[in-house]
Design a protein around this nucleic acid. Structure first.
Lengths: 189, 189
DNA sequence: AAGCGTGATGGGACTTGGTCTCATCACCGT
DNA sequence: ACGGTGATGAGACCAAGTCCCATCACGCTT
């Protein structure tokens, strides 16, 4: 038998999300989260650098986006490369079994300014990563920044649609469609 | 003679910026900021809701952007309205006498993750305000979001250029030029 | 079988951000 | 002269986050 109960950080994430839903982020203490997960404050901060990060830990996303852009066919334009990356994310991270969790997580984040702030920072990082990846493909600086920004916007909207979706649309499909709409809207401005 | 030294919050801002430059944000205590301004911790938190906000207080920007968009000529497209708003900001807030302060402030923010995080949140709020203002002009939702995002990007780049500027370019001029470049880059994607 | 290094955990002291409440005290109008 | 006002000071208090040390079961070595 294992010495400790396994999946400590997953347990912390679940406990945190439950408590945030029950009593709100700011009325929840790190100690309470740790206790619900059968752990202590020390252990919490060993798994997450701060209280907010417990809802943002699975940060493989940024790396996958970069890989997705790098792996896009050489002839693809900047926005096509971004579309390719979004489909990678959809296949690897935003799988249908995580849809409900994603929706609960989004609701918790939307309900609290501190969590929205952290989400905004993550958004900046993702955009910066995409910009760099596009520049490595030879896309000129400004075009790369614009494409990354539009990609991030499409991602945000697609994520909203995915978590709300009553039908079984894949994140990848939604993202592709949304990016096309964003592109069309951009052409009109 | 005045009962208290005037301009308490300005003094706090100056003291904070100096200390952040001298020893870094995280090695600076709210008590130290207050002492340098000849005040106390209590008074600091009476003027600013938290330590980060001392560099983000003059938040009239968001409101001015909305006014600028509202005041744009009725025939102007979304990006023209945004351009109009950016020039309002340039005339009212980013005046040439605040250029040096802006540069120092930007450097301090860039040097610290917590401050970058707060800046990211402010960016979200500004984008949301612009989106709403554009929608009030009858711009359809998605186009409004795209235009606001491109406007925010142009603003960010123009601000960088303005604080770096060796020549005497006005923020308004820089913003107009930058927005045109962003638009052109968007058309290529 | 006994011993030892390892790694995740527990425990608790400590600093700082942030909140709250009460006291102070110079100005101002009556 | 007097009381209201408004910005400030003082200090208790809680929670986030850091640090250091102890614990203890597992597996490997001897």
């Amino acid at each position: 038998m294992a010495r400790w109960q396994p999946h400590a950080s997953e347990r912390l994430v679940v406990a945190a999300l439950e408590l945030f839903e029950e009593r709100g982020y700011e009325n929840t203490t790190v100690i309470q989260i740790a206790e619900r997960a059968g752990l202590t404050k020390s252990t919490f901060f060993r798994h997450f650098p701060d209280k907010r990060e417990v809802l943002f830990g699975g940060g493989a996303v940024s790396g996958l986006l970069v890989e997705g852009i790098d792996a896009a066919p050489a002839g693809a334009g900047p926005l096509e490369a971004v579309a390719h990356a979004l489909e990678v994310i959809g296949a690897e991270v935003f799988t249908s079994d995580r849809r409900e969790f994603g929706a609960r997580r989004s609701a918790a984040i939307a309900a609290n300014p501190e969590l929205r702030e952290r989400e905004a920072l993550k958004g900046l990082r993702v955009t910066a990563s995409m910009t760099d990846a596009l520049k490595r493909r030879g896309v000129p600086d400004l075009a790369a920044r614009v494409a990354a920004e539009l990609g991030a916007l499409a991602w945000k909207i697609a994520y909203e649609r995915w978590t709300d979706a009553a039908n079984g649309d894949t994140f990848g499909e939604l993202a592709r469609r949304t990016l096309a709409e964003v592109r069309a809207a951009g052409a009109v401005c």
